[in-house]
Computed example of a mutant assay.
Amino acid sequence: MTARAAARVRSGEKSRAIAFVESPVQLLNVLEWARVSTTGDALTVVVLSPTDPMSRGQLRRMAELARDEGFTVRWQEARGGAGAPLRTVRELAPLLRRTGRIVIGDPFSRYVQLLLTLVSGKELTVVDDGTATLEFIGQVARGEPLVRWHRRGGSRGPRELVLAPVTAVARRRLTPSGPRTVEVFTSMPVEEVPPGITVTANTFEWTRSTFGPPRIASGADMVGTSLVETGVVDGDQYTQAVLSLARAHGATRYFAHRRENVDKLHRLHAETGLEIVRPDLPLELIARRGPIGSTVLSFPSTVVHTLPLALAGTGVRVAVCDIAPEWLKETASPRAQGFLSGVTGTARDVHRLPRMPSPASGAPA
């Protein structure tokens, strides 16, 4: 254990900050925040455990890394049955009252929003949960409700109507007011910062100092996306695009997103011949640990922003292929195309690839 980690252990239960995370990437970015924050040494991490096995597995590995760094990690089975949410809120309430700063990884999470209704006057930090961070900042600046970018507009269902008061209170907590600021810790490019929001750059310093440098393999690797699972991109179009990219760039491995459907991954392997890799840690750590291809291919996603930072100085090229309009499902949000184009357009230190043709326009079978 390092001296810095030992100092964190000696801080004991006198936590000056509490972080709520629901995904492995959120926990990674909490560790990055703690590396540069003045209150990061006295941090308690609460894992609001999801139900899907891949996310749980990666979170357990990340929790081990956090404990190795000297942080207190509390694993909360927040979704373990009908009574779990109320039990979780009751158990966490004393910890919330004692802390001075609350760190959250997903301001759109209904669970996090519920917890935020229990506190007021606390300092708040939002760490990266991927490209959704950009949408969060924009919605706060415009005074809009907190809605994920891929959700289709229209009338709200019964669940949304019941939770509307919770979301409204959480939004007020996440909106700077008077002398109270909201910190956003992000690797995303934020061009217009709303008044009262303080942006701290996430440079992946902890990742680079803890892992690597990696061994660089010949050829290319491909990064998967859950755009099919979230109802944005048509599955047939996606499979064809992966096949075309793999053939054009000699890709041999496909790093699956933790939310990708097993049946979809089986189909990708059968039709493309790619080796499907299901990482046990966030891709930024997997890539930094290596081996990793000399080129990493991706569709618009968080990694086109984070991988160039995690792999800085290694010579690995990150290349991104835009989503063609015809790949989108009819039920996709009207905002999807513009949002995804913005993800690619604002990425730094990446190589832009031409869009893959759709099957209707003559793509190889």
Rank of each mutant, 00 (worst) to 15 (best):
S11Y: 14
Y254V: 03
P50R: 01
K329E: 15
F299N: 03
T167G: 15
G250S: 09
F255V: 05
A42V: 01
G70I: 00
I216R: 04
I216S: 01
V303D: 00
E183R: 02
R90M: 09
L353P: 07
C321Y: 08
H266P: 05
R156F: 09
A7P: 07
P194Q: 08
S361T: 15
P179E: 13
G143P: 02
L283A: 06
L163P: 07
V232P: 05
R148Q: 15
R16S: 00
T207P: 07
G212T: 03
R180W: 00
K264R: 15
V262K: 12
V304T: 08
T117A: 02
P195M: 10
I216K: 08
A287G: 03
L297G: 00
T331M: 11
S177T: 11
I102E: 03
T225L: 11
R148C: 08
P53Q: 12
K14L: 14
V166Y: 00
D129P: 03
K264D: 12
N261K: 11
E64H: 15
R278N: 10
W149D: 01
G40M: 02
A93M: 12
V343R: 02
L309I: 04
E160P: 11
E69P: 03
P359T: 08
L283Q: 03
T125K: 00
L116R: 00
Q240M: 13
G231V: 04
R159I: 13
L124D: 01
E135M: 09
G293S: 10
E192G: 12
F20I: 06
R152C: 11
G212R: 02
Q26H: 14
D234Q: 10
P158E: 11
R267F: 06
A360Y: 11
Q58C: 09
I323Q: 01
V296H: 00
L297T: 01
P291L: 09
W33N: 04
P214D: 06
G40F: 03
P282D: 08
A310D: 00
V303Y: 03
R60V: 13
T344K: 13
T210Y: 02
H257P: 04
A217F: 03
E191A: 15
R152Q: 12
P354N: 07
L114T: 13
T72C: 13
P176W: 05
L43A: 06
P179R: 12
R87M: 11
E275H: 12
V89L: 10
F255H: 06
R142V: 09
T306F: 06
A19D: 02
V232M: 03
W206R: 13
A132I: 10
G40E: 02
A164Y: 11
V232G: 03
E22Q: 15
P214L: 04
A251R: 01
L86I: 13
